[in-house]
């Protein structure tokens, strides 16, 4: 499956890995991934993410709202150069932690 989740050993962190293309095709799986497990902080691991489109940006916004809006703790980790560009053009560094 393209969306995998793992709770960290510290317990309160949920790591969601996205494999392949991060686009609308993953919408259902992606939503399930954070709705199924409540965590204090979320990490989206993009090590294996090839590409993301604007609907993926929208999905991130929906996740942000679901997990607390402004108080949401979401970190986007291991982003490739291309993905970083997409995120920074949309100025998503203002809404998410990009590590």
């Amino acid at each position: 499956m393209a969306v995998k989740t793992k709770s960290s050993e510290k317990g309160n962190e949920l790591v969601i890995s996205i494999d392949g293309r991060f686009d609308f095709g993953l919408q259902k799986d992606f939503r399930k991934s954070y709705e199924a497990t409540k965590a204090a902080a979320y990490v989206i691991d993009m090590r294996a993410t090839e590409y993301m489109d604007s609907s993926a940006l929208g999905m991130l916004l929906m996740m942000r709202e679901y997990t607390g809006g402004r108080k949401a703790q979401i970190t986007l980790k291991n982003c490739s150069k291309d993905i970083k560009t997409i995120l920074s053009v949309a100025n998503f560094q203002n809404l998410f932690k990009i590590a």
Partner: peptide, 9 residues
């Protein structure tokens, strides 16, 4: 440069 979040967020 894009220095703002898109509209409607």
């Amino acid at each position: 440069k894009s220095s703002h979040l898109p509209l409607g967020i």
